[in-house]
C-alpha cells in the first residue's frame, strides 16, 4: 500500500487567491480601506496624530483580546475580563511597593494576581466542569464585591512611574503602549502558531474528547488558557491606569464586549477550534476606528450605539457564518 507522492502534491503552495479567503487578511483590508476613505472624507482623520491615537486605544482592546482569543479558540468564553481589567487598574495603588522607586513591584504583584484570577477560572472550568460562561460570570460578580471592598467605590489615582511611562511616553513618536502591544502580539502569535502548546489549544477547541484521547492534557491546557486570559486582562488594566492616571470601578466594563467583538470580527470561530490572533489585531483596530468615525459624525450616544451594533452585525453577515451542526 506504500505510495510516494511529491512534496507539491502533499503540501501545495498557497495561491494568492487563498489569501482573499483569509478572514484575518480581509479584516486587515477592511481597516485599510476604511482608513483611506475616512482620511479623504474627513480632514484630520488621516493625520499621524489621530491614527496614533486610534492605535493607542486599540492597544488596550487588543491586549484584553489576547486572552479572549486564546479562550475562544479553546472552545470557551471569558466574561470576567472586564472585571479583571477594573481590578487591576484599581489595585495597583493598593499593592505594596516594597520601596521600589520604579513602581515595577506593584505592577508585577497585580499582574500575578490577575493571572491567579484567570487560573481560578480555569480551575472551575477544567476541574469542577462549570460551564465557562457561568464560571467567568460568577467570577465577575465575585470581583465586583472585592472591588467595592478594596476601592470603596471611589476613584484611585496613581503616580506609579512605570505605568506613567507606558501610558504617556512616545519614543520615536510612537506611544509606548503601541510598542508594548506589538511585542506582546508577536509573542502571542508565536505561542499560538509555533508551539505545541498553541496546537493543543486548537485541538481542545475543535474536539476536547479526541484531544484527551490523543494524549493532550486537556485540564492543564484549559487552566493555562484562562490564566493567560487573566494575565492579558491584567496587563490591559495596568496600561489603562497608566494612560488615564486614575482608576475607578467600572473602568473595565466596556472591554468585555469589545474583546469578544474584536475576536469574532477577526475571524476566530466563537465555537472554538479555529482562528488566529492575527485577525484579532485588525479586529481591535476596526472597533476603535468604527467608534471614532461614529464620534466624528457627531451623533447622539443612542445613534452611536445603534451604528456600532449595526456595523458589527453587518460585518458578521459579510463573513461570519458558522456551520450550524458540527
Amino acid at each position: 500500500m506504500s505510495i510516494a507522492e511529491s512534496e507539491t502534491t502533499r503540501f501545495p503552495p498557497r495561491r494568492i487567491g487563498s489569501l482573499l479567503k483569509n478572514r484575518a487578511f480581509l479584516t486587515f483590508l477592511i481597516v485599510v480601506l476604511v482608513w483611506i476613505v475616512a482620511g479623504f472624507a474627513k480632514p484630520g482623520f488621516g493625520s499621524f496624530g489621530h491614527l496614533r491615537y486610534l492605535l493607542e486605544l486599540a492597544a488596550v482592546i487588543g491586549l484584553v483580546a489576547i486572552g479572549q482569543t486564546f479562550v475562544v479558540i479553546s472552545g470557551g468564553i471569558d466574561l470576567s475580563v472586564g472585571a479583571i481589567v477594573t481590578v487591576s487598574a484599581v489595585g495597583v495603588p493598593l499593592a505594596a511597593d516594597l520601596g521600589d522607586p520604579t513602581g515595577t513591584v506593584p505592577v508585577l504583584i497585580i499582574l500575578a494576581a490577575a493571572t491567579g484570577i484567570g487560573f481560578l477560572n480555569g480551575l472551575g472550568v477544567a476541574l469542577l466542569r462549570v460551564h465557562p460562561m457561568i464560571m467567568t460570570l460568577a467570577m465577575a460578580t465575585f470581583l465586583q464585591g472585592v472591588l467595592i471592598l478594596v476601592a470603596g467605590g471611589s476613584a484611585v489615582s496613581t503616580q506609579n512611574p512605570l505605568l506613567h511611562w507606558f501610558g504617556n511616553a512616545r519614543p520615536l513618536g510612537v506611544p509606548a503602549a503601541v510598542y508594548l502591544w506589538v511585542v506582546v502580539s508577536a509573542l502571542t502569535l508565536l505561542v499560538l502558531h509555533a508551539t505545541p502548546f498553541g496546537a493543543r489549544i486548537f485541538a481542545l477547541g475543535a474536539n476536547p474528547l479526541a484531544s484527551a484521547l490523543s494524549g493532550v492534557n486537556t485540564r492543564r491546557t484549559t487552566m493555562a488558557v484562562y490564566a493567560i486570559g487573566g494575565l492579558s486582562a491584567g496587563l490591559a488594566g495596568v496600561l489603562l491606569l497608566g494612560m488615564n492616571g486614575q482608576g475607578y470601578v467600572g473602568i473595565g466594563d466596556p472591554y468585555l464586549l469589545a474583546s469578544i467583538a474584536a475576536v469574532v470580527l477577526g475571524g476566530t470561530s466563537i465555537l472554538g477550534g479555529s482562528g488566529t490572533y492575527a485577525g484579532t489585531i485588525p479586529g481591535a483596530i476596526l472597533l476603535v476606528t468604527i467608534t471614532a468615525l461614529i464620534t466624528v459624525v457627531n451623533a447622539s450616544p443612542g445613534w452611536r450605539s445603534i451604528l456600532f451594533g449595526s456595523l458589527i452585525l453587518a460585518l458578521l453577515l459579510f463573513s461570519g457564518r458558522e456551520a450550524r451542526n458540527r
Binding site: A261, W303, R304, S305, I306, F308, G309, L313, G320, E322
Partner: peptide, 17 residues
C-alpha cells in the same frame, strides 16, 4: 445561521442605542 451569542451581543448595542 449566525451564532446567537454574537448576534445578541451586537443587538444589545442596537437595542440599547
Amino acid at each position: 445561521r449566525l451564532p446567537a451569542i454574537v448576534v445578541t451581543l451586537a443587538a444589545s448595542f442596537i437595542i440599547g442605542g
